[in-house]
Computed example of a mutant assay.
Amino acid sequence: MDALADLLAGVRARSAAFCRSVLEPPWALRIADGARLALVTVTRGHAWLVPDEDREPEVGGEPGVVRPLRIDEGQVAVIKGPAPHIVADEVDTPPSVVVGPGNRLTTVDGADLTEEFRRTWAGRESPDSSVLVTGTYSVTGDVGARLLAALPDAALVRAADIASPVLDLLIAELDDPGPGQQAVLDRLLDLALVETVRTWLGGQRGDAPGWFRAQGDPVVGEALRLIHDEPGAPWTVAALAARTGVSRAAFARRFAVLVGTPPMSYLADWRMTVAADLLRGTDDTADTIARTVGYANAFAFSAAFKRHRGVSPRAHRIGDR
């Protein structure tokens, strides 16, 4: 498995909050559902993605640092949460509907609008309508957090640049539902995220994360696949160099240049990321997890985890429950 596949494996649609909305101007929705990641595609008209005035600033940043982003017909945006944001026909249109957890819709004063919205805002299209298809994802654990760290607040691509017809399949399924629709939508939504993120990263060229750019290198890409496939193997610089067919010095230099970190540092970080998710997501013992991520016993693993994360494996596991 490559590095991107591993990160995307931590992101899944489960009973996805997924809908197709027909919106007549003026319209504006305040999205406050707490989703860590959402996908929005415009199939008619346009939409503005506007930072919410209550958005918390980034560390070292300022409120409102993210500029409004226009999403045109035929474009797809992956939006990073969980901070609220506004989707509107124009930048200055005030929101009249709030989208909360579970796709519950209310007025800004809290009155429930869910059924009314479904009757009146998801109806027939007019020449002035904007049509949005949206879905949200569950992102859990440290592996999912690594993916979020690689994305901007909103990643925008053209649907035409996505090689897969997945968006057409999504829209077709919404228009003509059949048995098992929820499972179909969940799987299509997973694929839509994979294709959109891959397309966006591929268009970043030199600005993409080092691990993504390096996947196309015959030497470093192979080393990354080995590390991700077998994080518990007794890897050394010499062993990885031998498997990729270059000298130890050439491998270490090439890996550091392309990925941006030495191979053993990358390996240690990935092992601790995998271990952190195993601690929180399974009941495996520390000894079992230690062997899974390449440590001889629980004592050696515990020392490495505390050095890397600042807390013991036990404290990490208890603190997340």
Results as ranks from 00 to 15, higher is better:
297 N>Y: 13
278 L>S: 03
262 P>W: 05
287 D>M: 13
301 F>C: 07
262 P>C: 12
290 A>N: 13
273 T>D: 04
295 Y>L: 10
294 G>C: 12
285 T>N: 06
268 A>K: 00
264 M>E: 08
311 V>G: 12
289 I>S: 02
308 H>S: 10
254 R>A: 15
263 P>H: 08
300 A>Q: 05
255 F>R: 13
252 A>P: 05
260 G>H: 03
277 D>C: 02
285 T>Q: 10
268 A>E: 05
303 A>E: 08
304 A>L: 02
289 I>A: 09
291 R>N: 12
288 T>G: 13
291 R>L: 12
264 M>T: 04
261 T>S: 08
300 A>K: 03
305 F>E: 08
278 L>H: 11
296 A>W: 15
265 S>E: 08
256 A>L: 09
300 A>S: 11
310 G>M: 06
266 Y>D: 06
311 V>R: 15
301 F>K: 07
282 T>V: 09
306 K>P: 11
307 R>Y: 12
290 A>G: 15
271 R>K: 11
282 T>W: 12
267 L>H: 03
260 G>F: 07
308 H>E: 12
270 W>E: 01
276 A>T: 05
272 M>Y: 00
276 A>R: 00
293 V>L: 12
271 R>S: 03
253 R>Q: 15
306 K>N: 13
281 G>W: 05
302 S>M: 01
268 A>W: 01
299 F>L: 12
288 T>P: 13
266 Y>T: 05
277 D>M: 02
277 D>T: 04
270 W>S: 02
300 A>D: 13
293 V>W: 06
254 R>Q: 15
253 R>T: 11
286 A>H: 09
277 D>Y: 05
282 T>K: 07
286 A>W: 04
309 R>V: 05
298 A>C: 06
284 D>A: 11
254 R>W: 15
275 A>D: 01
279 L>F: 13
